[in-house]
Each structure stands twice: as C-alpha cells, then as structure tokens.
Amino acid sequence: MEPILSARDVSFAYDNYEEKQLPPIVLDDISLDIQPGEFVAVLGHNGSGKSTLAKHFNAILLPTAGTVYVNGINTKEEDRLYDIRQSAGMVFQNPDNQLVATIVEEDVAFALENLGVPPEEIRRRVDESLKAVGMYEYREHSPHQLSGGQKQRVAIAGIIAMRPKCIVLDEPTAMLDPQGRKEVLQTIRQLGGQFGITVVLITHYMDEAAQSGRVVVVDNGKVILDGPPRQVFSHVELLKSVGLDVPQATELAWLLRQDGYNLPDDILFEEECVQAIEKLLEEHHVSH
C-alpha cells in the first residue's frame, strides 16, 4: 500500500536561527512512512523537532533537503497546495487561535466555503462533522461560550468537514484541563476507528501515546525509536536519557524489575500492572 504521508531524507533548518535562538538543524535526515488508517503518536520533548515535522506534512514548511509526499503529492508542488492541505488537515495547540467565525457551525463551514463547495453540500457536511465530534447541539453557540475541550472538538470538526485522508494534531491537548483532554482524545481515537482517517498525534503526554497504534520518538531532529507502544516504552533507559518519561505503570514495573522482581517489560496500562503485581504476590505467597 502506498503511504499517505511519506518523508524521505528530510532535513530542515531555519535560515535565521541565530536571532531566533533556535538550533541550527531542526530536522536531521528523517525518513518516515505513515500508512493509511494508522494512528501514530509522535513523541519528543520541547525543541526536539516534532512540531516542525508536523508542519512539513501540511506544506506549511518545506524541507531544506529531501522530499515530503502527502497522498502521493510532493509538498514542493506549489500549484497543488490546496490539494495537499485538503488531504492533510491540521489542528493546533491553542483552541482559541484557530476558530475564525463567531458561530460554531460557521466555523466548521469555513474550510468548505474556501474550497467553493456548494451550499447544500456544506450544510450536510457541517452537520455530519459536528455530530461526529459530538458538538451538534452547540452548533449555534459562539466559541467563547465553550470550554477548551469543546473548542478543540469544533476545530477538529472544521478539519474533518474537508474529508481529509489524514489529520495532523499538534499538541491538541496541551492547553486543556484533564476533562477536556479526555474528550479530545476520545474524539481523536474515534476518527481512526470510525472514519478510517489516518491520525498523526504530536504530543508529550505518554499516556496519550500509549493509546496509539505506533509511537515515533523524535529527539534532536532524528527518529530514535519507532514501533508499537509496548515495544517503544520497553526502552525505558533510552527514553529517560532523552528527557522523556514513560507511562507511570511502565515505570513502576521497570523500577520493580530493577530490584529483581520478575515482571514483564511491556506493561503499558495500570490494570496490566495491577494484574502482573497480583500474580507476582500470589507466586510469592505460594513459594513461602
């Protein structure tokens, strides 16, 4: 299958990095293929280049060297810019700064209006998208009446109304409270499951990454780990050495293993950890 997003030997550097106090090379020879329908989490600490990478998937930034293909289109093809942006929608961190209109449904319609979709079709797709993110009842509200999580869901609806093949979310939960994070994450997971949209989630929350199908860890502009969450998070030392955490359950199991307890190294979620420890305690009991 042809990958939906594909980065080939991509390097990127800002030309005015000195005045902006940025590292000279933000992306360093990255190659990454993302298949249709995948749910990929891109992990990295601040300044690792993960947001820069995300901006390449939408032709906001063009690589200094190498090529990026979105749905088979080279992002350097300027006359296909709107095809690219329609194939790969992008959701940003701050929910307030990406809503344009004063009414929720008008905002969801914004992209479709820009694309010149006929009015009846816009109406249909707006309703459909708002229902998909569970914000249909709020369609006539104004954005400032909504909570952060709700605003972010509206922003997601605005993107999926374009019917993109892929959606790139750049730390969509970083400014939300726990309740909002939960709502948004649930919506994101639904996108992949229900609509078959490829999801690229840029995040620094380990528990969000743990729920994905594939984790890509970026550090210093390089991909250092790439694989299913269980496999990636089993590299506890490596992750810690680049300033990242692992999910708490994984960390607990790792610490216990360090002390010589026999626990599996692919624990991700709390329940698994509880079961493993219970099992261990039982064995312990039996042996005494």
């Binding site: 939408n58 700064n97 820009n114 694309l115 010149g116 006929p118």
Partner: peptide, 15 residues
C-alpha cells in the same frame, strides 16, 4: 496559519 491550513485564499472561488 490556521486559516491557511483551512485553504483560505481570500474570496477566490469562495461559496
């Protein structure tokens, strides 16, 4: 930036 990502290009072909 967010508007650009949603294909805004003034009123060219806008409905």
């Amino acid at each position: 930036l967010a508007m650009e990502c949603r294909c805004y290009r003034g009123d060219v072909g806008r409905t």
